[in-house]
Design a protein around this nucleic acid. Structure first.
Lengths: 194, 194
DNA sequence: AGCACTCTACTTACTGGTCAGTAAGGTGTC
DNA sequence: GACACCTTACTGACCAGTAAGTAGAGTGCT
């Protein structure tokens, strides 16, 4: 079987990919190793070989999100705050288009109290980074004069982050919610396109 | 055992009360009939007597929320839009103070794709009612001149609903999130108190 | 008053399924 | 022969759900 075998292991990455889909559409508590192994075409124990405990898999998932998110920020570093916000909106869109998935922070904060301790630590750090980034955008947006809004950059950054997280969840019931809320966030920030 | 026995049954109500706590802190998928029966001091099958399937319990919980919410709206009917919004903020506060619970719409929309069909129908109707109410407040707030905001009443109503739902979830990680976002929502609506 | 009946609200005891997790063994590659 | 990467085979816990039985309260009939 020489089908795209990688130096490291392909399987580990594929497990993470499948687990990610399951996490975003069903949540951490509502998917099992069975779901992954049957989709992957291996036995259950193969998943345990790569991730002995389910919380190991969970932690690895969040750590990968954090790495990706840091890379995402670096790539957008040269853009102006408004364009960065639009890039963030684009992320949300792609979640939604993928079978009405929601953003990871939404799942992790909702299930937070039921998560294993090591996942809680990782999740809290991840969500904090995202929140800080949102605040950073609104701060620079106001400083550069591109954005005009009532309230502090901290508060409006958190509100936009929170509203977008909620929007993806509501979009599961109300198709238009995500677009409506994106438009309204632009309006509140004094940006064009609403 | 003549201890506060009611005409109907007390047990059914107590089951709903315990299930509600579990729903708001752990989610629907992460609590079991065991949790309820052990807390209530009865056997597992007693819960099944009152609610044969778990989805029956779930549907009954949401229906009770809808009844309560309609009563809540009626009670606030005489207040001006700003005061109604504050009453809504008060609801959120009480969730948060009760062991960092989140609002029911947050749980139900996040777990939506894993819920049984009958619960999905009920949940969608409930969330729709809440969203409509939020929009109603912002519409009347603008009409009366009490609120001043950019964008349409529909969009800003949805954004405030969405932001508050997200805020309760984020408050599990960040203690200040709820207050910060409440303040910011007031600011965006041009209300005092921020 | 005594008895038969029914209904409500449980109980005990169980089923079959799913879950995370483990132990021991096999197979191919370097 | 050591190692990475799997397999088969299993354990014990938990899960929702069911079946059958029971205690007590109420109801009606004689």
């Amino acid at each position: 079987m020489t089908q795209g075998s990688d130096p490291k292991t392909d399987t580990r990455k594929r497990i993470l990919d499948i687990a990610e889909q399951l996490l975003l559409s069903r949540g951490f508590n509502a998917f099992s190793y069975q779901h992954i192994s049957s989709e992957l075409g291996v036995r259950n124990a193969a998943i345990h070989y790569h991730f002995p405990k389910k919380s190991d898999l969970g932690v690895a998932l969040i750590q990968r999100y954090r790495r990706r998110f840091r890379r995402f920020i670096e790539q957008q570093a040269e853009l102006d705050p408004g364009a960065q916000l639009e890039a963030y909106f684009g992320l949300s869109d792609s979640y939604y288009r993928q079978h009405r998935q929601i953003c990871p922070s939404g799942i992790l904060s909702t299930e937070f109290l039921t998560l294993p301790e090591d996942m809680q630590r990782e999740a809290a750090a991840f969500i904090d980074e995202m929140r800080q980034w949102a605040v950073d955008i609104t701060r620079r947006g106001a400083a550069s004069g591109q954005m005009r809004y009532a309230g502090t950059p901290e508060a409006i950054g958190m509100m936009l982050f929170s509203a977008l997280q909620g929007a993806l969840q509501l979009a599961r019931i109300d198709d238009g919610a995500l677009d409506t809320i994106k438009r309204q966030v632009r309006a509140v920030l004094g940006l064009p396109g609403h």
